[in-house]
């Protein structure tokens, strides 16, 4: 009995790490650029589909783990240079509408390219087995997922805390004027951050593909969850995204067998309560 819970909690951690990867991109973009990206879920979707295509063509999951986020990031970079940067100065309302438009386009183009029915992606051969921990058996891929995402989280943390780029991003989240005064090309910083944040959503899409496949209607669902995580964690907070991502993942996983709609109801209720009582998130700075 205990093993069932342990199983669900581990599943939840895996799910939570995927949520973290999506949300940290969203929160990074919001923190530095003060930009609300409603297309974030669509980029996740694109990651999943690119993973599917790469695996179908080459049979190599690892290649897709490298290529798909890069491709999604590149697309984001191009979009930022051509369109997104023109709307930074507009009220959030307009940012939401434009990115909603982008999300619609990506979703429809995905259906044109890959069809309306979801595609499943096989688990990479290397990770098809199970791991035995005493009496307890657990799928290798899910363990890999937790470990790999944790590595990405550490790398990201090092990038933000230990590099000049990270320092600029953090300073810029406080005040963009400071960064301009440092003589940095603020627009380049914005482009890179936007591309990085979106690439992380793409990466999350790749990692989730062997579990949930690529399905055109995942985009809006994932976007909703990402907003829940970002709000609960505090908009712009790295640690908040990690803690809230794991929390939401574990809650959803534990409730999945009992009352799946209830878990969604709960997380959105939690989101509403957090905005009303602690708008800067459970872990955010006031």
């Amino acid at each position: 009995m205990l093993n069932v819970y342990l199983f669900q909690i581990l599943n939840g951690l895996g799910l939570g790490m995927i949520y973290f990867l999506i949300s940290v991109g969203l929160t990074l973009i919001f923190g530095l650029l003060n930009f609300v990206n409603f297309a974030h879920g669509a980029f996740f979707l694109l990651g999943s589909y690119l993973c599917y295509t790469t695996v179908t063509l080459t049979g190599n999951f690892w290649l897709s783990l490298l290529l798909a986020p890069l491709a999604v990031g590149l697309l984001a970079w191009l979009l930022e240079r051509s369109l997104i940067r023109r709307i930074y100065h507009l009220p959030h309302t307009f940012q939401i509408l434009v990115t909603l438009g982008i999300a619609l386009i990506i979703q429809e183009v995905s259906i044109m390219l890959w069809g309306p029915v979801g595609k499943s992606v096989p688990t990479p051969e290397l990770l098809r087995g199970i791991v035995r921990l005493g009496h307890f058996a657990y799928p290798q891929y899910r363990l890999f997922l937790i470990g790999f995402a944790a590595l990405v989280a550490v790398a990201l943390w090092l990038l933000l805390e230990r590099t000049r780029f990270g320092a600029l991003v953090r300073a810029g989240s406080e005040s963009t004027e400071t960064v301009s005064l440092l003589g940095t090309n603020i627009f380049r910083l914005f482009s890179i951050t936007f591309a990085l944040g979106v690439a992380l959503a793409g990466l999350a899409g790749v990692l989730s593909a062997p579990l949930r496949g690529a399905n055109p209607f995942l985009g809006p669902e994932i976007l909703g969850v990402a907003f829940v995580v970002v709000v609960i964690g505090g908009m712009g907070s790295f640690g908040g995204a990690l803690a809230a991502g794991l929390m939401v993942g574990v809650v959803q996983s534990l409730m999945a067998s009992l009352w799946p709609q209830g878990s969604s109801l709960m997380i959105y209720a939690a989101m509403a309560v957090v905005i009303l009582l602690r708008p800067y998130g459970l872990f955010g700075r006031a």
């Binding site: 609300v36 009220p91 959030h92 309302t93 939401i96 909703g224 907003f227 829940v228 709000v231 908009m235 709609q261 209830g262 969604s264 109801l265 959105y268 209720a269 989101m271 509403a272 905005i275 009303l276 708008p279």
Partner: peptide, 28 residues
Amino acid sequence: ALAIRRTGIYFVMLTLALTQMAYFIAYT
């Protein structure tokens, strides 16, 4: 009455969360 306690993006997020809640309640 709930949503206008916040402004800007938090207002939008509240309306979004409440719609999702309504959907899942109707589903249940």
